[in-house]
């Protein structure tokens, strides 16, 4: 099974191509955030190095959010279009779980975090079980202090990843258990890892209706829903 894995959820761009459990090629870039321009050329380069054609692919695994709105849109649009146009499987993985998968320590608690500004984060808590990150606290858009207080309840060493360094001080004052020192490398998505995990995950049922996991309404929609409780808001797009 030939698998392409993609993550452009935040500043890093990470792509990998695998043949079953063998990683054929992997690229992770952090020097720019021009995913709209560079994601497809990097995929082209990657497949070229692996001597594969797009039609050789069997499956696309994508980190589908949370993260930067533009970033997750580019990854998801590329992945779902590729899956739809080639008629192959699409597998979606949380962008936070993608980071958590970097920790190869069985039983470890991992807290990947993305800075969402104004003391807010996209964050979740995962436990590594049988080599896979399993959610303990679901991914959410939340106040960073509230999140840290919730993970503190576990009273275990916790691996903080991603933008956790933005909140170093707060983590040390809130969380009493030891926090393992993390190599900066682990703060970057390495999608070869989710490519491996995605090999066994169930594919998305309806590729056409698949959307990024924003974990946050737009401001306009949040305000509109507050003013219009009980309104059905499912079918606003019409074919004409």
């Amino acid at each position: 099974m030939k698998i392409l894995a993609i993550d452009t959820s935040n500043r890093p761009l990470s792509v990998a191509v695998l043949d079953d459990t063998t990683v054929l090629a992997a690229i992770t870039v952090t020097v720019h955030q021009k995913h709209a321009e560079y994601l497809l050329p990097e995929i082209e380069r990657l497949l070229g190095m692996a001597d594969l054609q797009p039609t050789d692919l069997d499956r696309v695994v994508v980190a589908a959010g949370p993260g930067s709105y533009t970033g997750i849109r580019i990854a998801v649009t590329t992945a779902k279009t590729l899956a739809a146009t080639l008629g192959i499987d699409l597998v979606a993985v949380s962008s936070l779980a993608t980071l958590a998968a970097n920790v190869p320590v069985e039983g470890a608690l991992v807290a990947p975090m993305f800075d969402a500004r104004n003391q807010n984060v996209f964050a979740g808590l995962y436990r590594i079980q049988a080599g896979r990150p399993q959610p303990v606290i679901a991914d959410a858009h939340t106040n960073v202090t509230a999140f840290l207080q919730a993970v503190q309840e576990y009273a275990e060493p916790i691996w903080f990843l991603g933008d956790a360094e933005h909140f170093d001080e707060l983590i040390h004052t809130t969380v009493s258990a030891a926090t393992p020192r993390v190599s900066p490398w682990l703060n970057l998505p390495q999608v070869a890892t989710i490519g491996l995990l995605g090999r066994d995950l169930a594919p998305v049922k309806d590729v056409d209706r698949f959307v990024p996991n924003y974990l946050r309404l737009t401001q306009a929609e949040a305000e509109w829903r507050a003013k219009n409780p009980g309104e059905d808001n499912t079918s606003y797009v019409e074919k004409v």
Partner: peptide, 20 residues
């Protein structure tokens, strides 16, 4: 609903529709 096009909402809808 908003009295005009909200760019972020527009972008989200495009993703829902494009492959269909």
């Amino acid at each position: 609903r908003f009295g005009g096009v909200v760019p972020e909402v527009a972008s989200r809808h495009h993703i829902e529709e494009v492959t269909l």
